[in-house]
Design a binder for these strands. Structure first.
Lengths: 198, 198
DNA sequence: ACCTATCATTGAACTGCGTTCAATAATTGA
DNA sequence: TCAATTATTGAACGCAGTTCAATGATAGGT
């Protein structure tokens, strides 16, 4: 009772995610339209709703992939980084910046899907976020061994948020566009100052 | 040839801005609807388009006011601040945070109006932003007298972006909501570390 | 004060969107 | 092979922003 239908849906699900991923990457979240999607996938508009609750669910599925790629990029940068924990932080943050710059529309979509009133972020989002926070927290534990975990959590969040803010405003082309090198420089500036033990 | 019509339009323009301001403040940018607006203002839907190019223009007019109130709040906080330039930065940043917290939906609308493809930010936006940057840059000139204006501009932008990022993610209720005190603490943490001369 | 050419206002209609659901087609166990 | 069940379809619905032909107001010349 499950095979034929289940398989078809699985396939359609992946097709739709791939198309949506490409659409978001090249034209942004706002270009995601049910009819275009159906036409490209060669299915009926209604078929989308057999597989996803609504278009937001589809966008979230794309976001899960994007966030995962982002995490992988940061992890890869960390793997190639030197021992020095401050340098590790700088390299990870710049990897975050470069991912955002090279996947601008997909990265924006991570924050632009509107959640229904009072709805909390999906689990995978919190999990990926937790992973990123862990990458940051580990070097901080080396730099500030005297901090307890609550203080370190606060500092972790502060650093992530700061880097995110620098990248967000830096890539916002409305405000005349900040050169990529300047963004890297601001990131390094903040991180190096924030991690001076004195 | 200008009086009667011109006056009526001026009045309608202000009425619409006031209604839109209230709508955005209480229900968010997404609740701004042409028909509701016309009903509340007691005019035809088409009348909105005699006065504003489209609903985005109206939202931008509201944003101009919001941004101005924000600037005034920051300026007021600075006026009451002690001489110490580091404390001035902390107090201004916390004023930014408190404005964002107490005018959450209006503040979000500042960044959520979507600009048409390739369109640059309006002049008043850049002007208000420049004003905020000036408030930050002045104390920095006291703290780091040796920096040239390019270095100081970079640091100014880095600090503003960091504080903005901390407030943005801190107020994002999807990520489980960060306590207001923690946000203030993160702001102070970043600013005090960033402004240690050593 | 009137008249009419000009301009402003109106709201029904147009387009485009996400989403639904009665009708149709496919599937599957007997 | 054949119903009973289940899945798919796409025309239709509701609700946005925006437009524009028809209606109403305005103002300068007489």
């Amino acid at each position: 009772m499950a095979t034929k239908t289940e398989l078809r849906r699985q396939e359609l699900r992946e097709t739709l995610i791939m198309i949506a991923e490409r659409t978001i990457a090249t034209q942004g979240l706002g270009a995601l339209r049910a009819r275009d999607l159906a036409k490209e996938a060669g299915c009926a508009v209604g078929a989308i709703y057999n597989v996803f609750g609504d278009l937001t669910d589809l966008a979230l599925a794309v976001n899960a992939r994007t966030f995962h790629r982002l995490g992988a990029d940061v992890a890869a940068a960390l793997a190639d980084a030197p021992e020095d924990p401050v340098e590790q932080l700088v390299i990870m943050a710049q990897a975050y910046h470069h991912f955002a710059a090279q996947n601008h529309l997909s990265w924006r979509a991570l924050f632009d899907v509107e959640r229904a009133e009072g709805e909390t972020a999906p689990d995978w989002y919190l999990a990926e976020m937790g992973q990123l926070f862990a990458y940051i927290s580990d070097p901080l534990a080396v730099i500030f061994p005297a901090y307890d975990s609550a203080e370190r959590a606060l500092l972790t969040r502060a650093l992530f948020s700061s880097v995110h803010g620098i990248v967000l405003l830096g890539l916002d082309e409305a405000s005349a566009g900040v050169p990529s090198d300047d963004i890297d420089r601001m990131i390094a500036l903040v991180l190096r100052h924030m991690t001076m033990s004195s």
